[in-house]
Amino acid sequence: MRPFRYEHAADRAQALQLANGPREATASAHITAPIQYLAGGTTLIDLMKLDVMRPEVLVDINALAGQHGAIRADASGLHLGALARMADAADDLVVRRDYPMIAQSLELAASPQLRNMASLGGNVLQRTRCNYFRDPSWTACNKRHPGSGCAAMDGVNRKLAVLGASDHCIANYPGDFGVALAALGATVDIEGAGGRRVLAFEDLHRLPGDTPHIETNLKPGELITGFTVPAGPWTRRSLYLKIRDRQSYEFALTSAAVALDVEGGVVREARIGLGGLAAKPWRSHEAEAALKGRPLDEAAAHAAADAALAKAAGHGEATFKIELGRRTLVRALLQAHAMEV
């Protein structure tokens, strides 16, 4: 960990001012950015201790919880403030009833202590758990040092991506909540020096391509202030199924976020996300299309799973996740279909 300056922002305006300094490089989600927003700190502080991130200034935005910490549902959908804690959203009774997928994605993540600290805005920006990224003594990591290579490609990579990876990076997106947001077609509210904008959550994260060090479409100095999950007839029949080696406190090997609008056994609409498997929070429009208008039986579930993983490519140890991903989605679809709603 390197010395840094700690700044406390009293409100959003001050946060943006502190993070959009005179220097060329202002705060951004890029790991090399010299200014970083600090909320729960559960990823950032970790990576600073590991010497992976060396910010010069931290802008503490926890005081923005008053402005951007609410959890509210209305006819249009579910509004989640970026400073709401994971535990608050997971415990919210309306979220649990009307958006069970969201609640489950949160409560199946991390540990109670981390869920009490971590903010929703920070959560979606959680960085990959690729061991080669998290240990700077490995020189080859295109995320840390563009052009240096990818040590994971032929290394220990059991947990890494089989969807959306590139020849430059096979890191996977480790989070759960983001997968649920992607599946449900959420939007993300962003504030920057130039004002407010709204982005489809699916467009927040970028695929690695040949620039794996650029992980999101946030512009320098921008701050996530909240999320909106649109209401829909599928949100109550929804779940988040997480498959992992142990039953708690572990990242997903594979996960499936599934929401179904079923009428008379036939799927009217499906919303499907996949976690653990992909380079970013992954929505499978292919699987959704495969289900639309079909009775949900085992064959349909398998067809959807095949569609979802059709473009998957394995790397070494992670290859089994393609088959496990299929099975995870099949199981999640059948479980969602069997839900009493």
Binding site: N131, Y132, D135, G155, V156, S248, E250, F251
Partner: peptide
């Protein structure tokens, strides 16, 4: 050694 931390070197949690 690659998984040299307690998040990646797995031991059972209470739920297991």
């Amino acid at each position: 050694y690659v998984n040299d931390n307690l998040a990646d070197y797995l031991v059972p949690v209470n739920a297991d």
